[in-house]
Amino acid sequence: MSITVRALGDKDFFSWLGLFEGYSEFYKSELTDQKALQVWSWIIDKNESLTGAVAVNDDGDFIGFAHYREVPNTLTATRGLFLDDLFVSPDSRSTGVGRALIEFAKDYAATRHLTTVQWLTAADNETAQRLYDDVASRTDWVTYEIEL
């Protein structure tokens, strides 16, 4: 199976939605039509920082996606890329799709002269962490959150 990774486009909504439903289910987050449409509008709006890429198999099926955005790095006075979401369909896992999506994000960042690519993952997502430990350096930072 070959994998093609490309930027998400205006006509990709319904194929992307199937993957986004799987992503929401994986993280046990209820997905409403309103949420899906809001996220999609951010991805395709050129005035928003969030954008994304999709992995496609030989049959043209969407098998994974990545959502990312540029962020300032204040301590270095540079800009980096934050990988908000990375998802691979269950039947395509361990086939190189996740790695291909990360490489696409890395190339995207490099062409824009960004200095880092960073992301978070769930502490219990050990399968993903095996890939992440192979392609990146784990940091010492601890994440905190306040819900409003």
Rank of each mutant, 00 (worst) to 15 (best):
F87D: 12
Y144V: 07
W141D: 06
K106S: 12
L131C: 05
I44M: 03
A55F: 13
Q118N: 12
W16N: 06
E103Q: 15
S94M: 12
L120K: 01
H67A: 01
T32Q: 13
E48Q: 12
F26W: 13
F104M: 09
T76G: 12
D33K: 13
L17M: 12
T111S: 11
Y23T: 05
G60H: 06
F87S: 10
R138P: 03
L120I: 03
I3L: 04
W119K: 00
Y27A: 10
T95K: 15
S92H: 12
Q129S: 07
L17Q: 15
R6V: 12
D45A: 01
G60I: 04
W141I: 02
Q34M: 10
T51P: 05
Y27N: 09
T127L: 08
D140A: 04
G18L: 12
H67P: 06
F14E: 11
Q129D: 15
G98R: 01
Y144Q: 13
D124V: 11
Y68L: 03
G22V: 05
A77G: 07
W141K: 05
G18W: 11
K28R: 14
L50I: 14
G22R: 09
N125M: 01
Y108D: 05
V117C: 05
R138W: 11
A109M: 04
G52P: 12
G64Y: 00
S15H: 14
V142I: 14
L114W: 02
V117M: 04
W40E: 00
K46T: 02
D84Y: 02
D10L: 11
R138F: 08
Y144L: 02
A55G: 12
G22Q: 14
R69M: 08
T139V: 07
P72T: 15
D12P: 04
E147P: 09
Q118V: 12
Q118L: 11
G52L: 01
I146T: 15
T116I: 07
F104C: 12
V142M: 08
G60L: 04
L83K: 13
K106Q: 14
H113C: 05
V135R: 02
M1A: 10
V5E: 10
V88K: 05
G52S: 02
I146Q: 13
S89F: 07
D85S: 05
S24Q: 09
T143M: 11
R99V: 09
K46Y: 00
Q38G: 05
K46I: 07
E103G: 13
T143F: 09
V88L: 06
F62S: 10
D33N: 13
T51K: 11
T76E: 08
R93S: 00
S94P: 00
N57R: 04
L50K: 06
S15Y: 10
E126F: 06
H113W: 05
Y23A: 07
L31V: 11
D124M: 00
D85W: 09
D134R: 14
D134G: 06
W119H: 02
V135N: 06
N57E: 14
D140S: 11
A53Q: 13
F13D: 06
K46R: 07
F14L: 13
K106D: 09
L114K: 02
R6G: 09
E145Q: 15
S89E: 06
T121M: 01
A53Y: 14
G18E: 15
G18A: 06
E145G: 12
A53H: 14
S94D: 13
S49M: 08
L114T: 01
T111V: 03
G60P: 00
V54A: 07
A100F: 01
D58Q: 06
E30Y: 08
I43V: 15
Y108M: 02
K35N: 04
D33Y: 08
F14Y: 14
T4K: 07
